[in-house]
């Protein structure tokens, strides 16, 4: 019984559904894990994405950067199927996310890890149970194996000793590492990091940075990183997308992308206050707002 559960757990990483068509298999075989075509999203009358195209390479660390409010987190929500686009197509591992049923979408999500900006640990459970949560929900593994898997993942993030602690007893950096352990507990094919470096001190930032890089190399996980920290991104990412105005305005090697000469990269990577992203939020006539219309020429 226990052995069958173990084999059941292992088989989830090796079997390919027989219903997959040849075209899907072809997509699986190529180097792109997430393929986005013509993505268009309008929220509250504002166009977030306008015919956005993006290919996220398999097995690499890809950073998505851009000014605040450009929809980086929204893009992650599209990839996980939390949000539906108004138009366009997103294929993850060959599967069109918009066409998946609820069960198929949940099955896909079992292969995706997601690291929230605020860690999103379950506050009722201690660190051990937080990491064990996905295993308990989706497998019938014996308790001893669950314990070993959880301790293995906690050891990987350097927090095996923190297993009995509650989330409220953790620092921001520790909470993020626990969330990372939870995200990798199923050895996912893809991990999405939503601003993983925000609010971390230099030590915690370097720890998280090293973890992302190590996990990518040792487990062959595809990593998508939404971040603003160019220095950190340069250290670990192999590809960068800069999105603004609903489109990809620049992409390429993180070490050279800042030198491509476009006004977008110049402003974003140079930290200029004004440029294609205006300093002033769109507003009416300033003199008129102050009541000086007609007085000031």
């Amino acid at each position: 019984m226990a052995l069958a559960a173990v084999f059941g757990y292992l088989s989830r990483f090796t079997t390919v559904p027989s219903s997959m068509t040849e075209s899907v298999r072809a997509t699986l075989d190529d180097d792109v894990l997430v393929r986005i075509r013509g993505l268009t999203t309008v929220l509250g009358g504002k166009t977030i994405f306008d015919q956005l195209d993006m290919d996220i390479p398999r097995g690499k660390i890809t950073a998505i950067m851009g000014p605040s409010g450009t929809g980086k987190t929204t893009l992650l929500k599209h990839i996980t199927g939390q949000m539906r686009a108004d138009a366009g197509e997103i294929r993850v591992d060959g599967r069109n996310v918009a066409e998946l049923s609820r069960e198929q979408l949940y099955k896909l999500r079992e292969g995706i890890g997601y690291l929230f900006q605020n860690s999103a640990l379950l506050t009722d459970f201690d660190v051990f149970e937080n990491v064990a949560f996905p295993l308990r929900q989706h497998t019938q593994l014996p308790e001893e194996l669950i314990r070993n898997l959880v301790l293995l993942k906690l050891q990987a993030v350097g927090l095996r000793g923190a297993a009995p602690l509650m989330p409220s007893e953790l620092s921001g950096g520790m909470a993020r590492r626990v969330a990372l352990a939870r995200a990798i507990v199923f050895d996912p094919m893809l991990i999405l990091y939503d601003e993983p470096f925000v609010g971390l001190d230099p030590v915690a930032l370097n720890q998280v940075l090293r973890l992302i890089s190590t996990l990518n190399q040792t487990l062959g996980i595809t990593s998508v990183l939404v971040a603003h920290e160019l220095a950190a991104v340069r250290q670990i990412a192999q590809h960068v997308f800069l999105i603004a105005n609903g489109k990809v305005v620049a992409q390429g090697d993180p070490k050279t992308i800042a030198d491509d000469g476009s006004p977008w990269t110049r402003q974003f990577f140079g930290g200029e206050a004004d440029g294609p992203v205006p300093f002033q939020y769109p507003a009416g006539d300033y003199a008129q707002a102050l009541g000086f219309a007609g007085v000031v020429k």
Binding site: T80, Q82, Y106, K107, R109, E110, I112, Y114, F116, N118, A120, L121, L122, T123, F133, P134, Q137, H138, R182
Partner: peptide
């Protein structure tokens, strides 16, 4: 409400756990 505010409900969704059922 606090689970929503701290993304715990979203985290469950992304761990393929149905928050309505759980």
């Amino acid at each position: 409400g606090l689970m929503r505010a701290t993304d715990q409900i979203d985290a469950m969704e992304l761990m393929a756990v149905d928050p309505i059922a759980y």
